[in-house]
Design a binder for these strands. Structure first.
Lengths: 272, 272
DNA sequence: CAAATAGTGTCTCTAAGACAATATCAC
DNA sequence: GTGATATTGTCTTAGAGACACTATTTG
């Protein structure tokens, strides 16, 4: 063998001897939706939402799952994730990041299927999710994620009167990242509840340092909008003057202003 | 189909119709090695090292690569990574974290092989790397990683008079993480230079917030040792009183002291 | 004018960097 | 004693939270 040329080696090489897994990409796509409320001059409520699809076939028939699909030969896993989320949501996401690789041998009753989990951000447009190629039902679910410091967390997803409540245990790795294991899936298909929790964890740390929040907004935005995005994702509350001070390092001002709201116009900013 | 039970569906399900990739785990295992220098009372130099293996077969014959191997049915990707690094380094790593999934269709001339990249930490013991099951040559390489802020980075790996220098371009993702693409592999096999750079990036952020540095040290350690680990990984320099102040939140003191060095004994601490 | 957001300035507290000074051991 | 690390304390500066206050618009 050592005397063979590389070409000769490759010509005789075969990987057919080993069993191989199917590989999928599952995408937790987030969007921030605003919901008008009460007084004409009050700002709308903002909610973080994640896109779920109702499974039309087995396994987990009629359960809600993340959009995703099989990796095809000739594409990268990111291309696969983009393709799947685009097909399901009808829009190209503004950001995409690998959050985990789920490989438990029994995670899918269909057989040996491993899945790369992604977090992604959909810029708020008027896009309504479309039923994908499988004619499945795709809907945005309001996200609520409470992780007390006791090592357990509760993920609640709501759409209309559908309420999915998953219970997870937190496991802090030596590298500072937190992984989640499902204690109670709450009707969410496969291990997708853990994927959503991990994606939220990544989303929050990305929102903290101003690296992800711009992707939720159009090109030009007010500082108040920006603040609402950060607050909504991180589930915190900041005083406007203090937020303004921090945000100043990450934005450039334009010479445009909003108008039509029941209060002083706000200057529009862009990402620096 | 909708009327079938789930059991009937699964009994008739077959995934043989789709082509599937081979999946590997590649592990960037780091260790900090101390190198006595000069005066008897001076602290030894510390260097960050990564374990590489000289490939005995094609492709990339005689090039240096990360230890790794194929995912087997019935194991998780983490178990696979642990198994491979244990076989190669002869010791179980103290930490393991997924840093990326490399899926470019042409990344491996043998065919469709995707790889999960891990960062891992080997506690400094007297362990010498063993030639693995392939009778390959395994060696620790000193790591030097300079990323100027211009978007390019240089990764230099040295062992004896072997010097591998890879050039990479940095790509900051919307989620705040940095990905690396290889401009010049410097003789490092496959896309492993990018894997090492990504692992270093993760290692540095883990060292910054005291989440990973303890894994490089034995159970009890002095604050000076801890400081050296952080400084070595992050390539920075901190004044000892200031480091002591920050570290205080993360350690518990014992009632033991070092002795035998040419200076005042130091109290031993443990991870809190 | 009232209600709401937009925007500025300032006080305080904390964390981090710089650095002076003392303590203690092996040789 | 000398040379090294160990350890404590303090000064200064940067940043974040709290908050008082002014500005501007629509109904």
């Amino acid at each position: 063998m050592d005397n063979n040329s590389e070409q000769a080696f490759l010509a005789g090489y075969s990987m057919d001897d080993y069993e191989r897994p199917s590989v999928t990409a599952d995408v937790a796509a987030f969007m921030i939706r605003s919901e008008a409320c009460g007084s004409y001059r009050k700002e709308p409520q903002s909610r973080l939402s994640v896109l779920l699809i109702r499974r039309g076939g087995h396994p987990y028939k009629d359960c809600w799952a993340l959009p995703g699909g099989f990796l095809q030969k000739g594409e990268t896993i990111e291309e696969c994730a983009l393709r799947e989320i685009t097909e399901e949501a009808g829009v190209a996401p503004a950001a995409l990041m690998l959050t985990g690789l789920y490989t438990a041998p029994d995670r899918d009753p269909r057989g040996w299927i491993i899945s790369a989990a992604f977090a992604s951000v959909i810029t708020d447009t008027e896009t309504e999710p479309v039923g994908g190629d499988d004619a499945n039902d795709a809907q945005w679910f309001d996200v609520s994620f409470d992780n007390d410091d006791t090592g357990s967390a509760v993920l609640t997803l709501m759409h209309g009167n559908i309420r999915l409540e998953a219970h997870l245990t937190e496991h802090r790795s030596s590298f500072g990242r937190t992984e989640y294991r499902i204690a109670e899936s709450g009707g969410i298909a496969f291990d997708h509840a853990a994927m959503i929790a991990s994606a939220l964890s990544v989303l929050r740390s990305g929102a903290e340092n101003f690296s992800i929040i711009f992707d939720f907004l159009p090109e030009k935005f007010t500082l108040n909008q920006l603040q609402r995005v950060q607050e909504t994702i991180m589930n915190i509350s900041v005083l406007p003057p203090n937020f303004r001070r921090k945000a100043a390092d990450y934005v450039t001002e334009t010479d445009e202003y909003t108008s039509g709201a029941g209060h002083r116009p706000a200057k529009l900013f862009m990402k620096k």
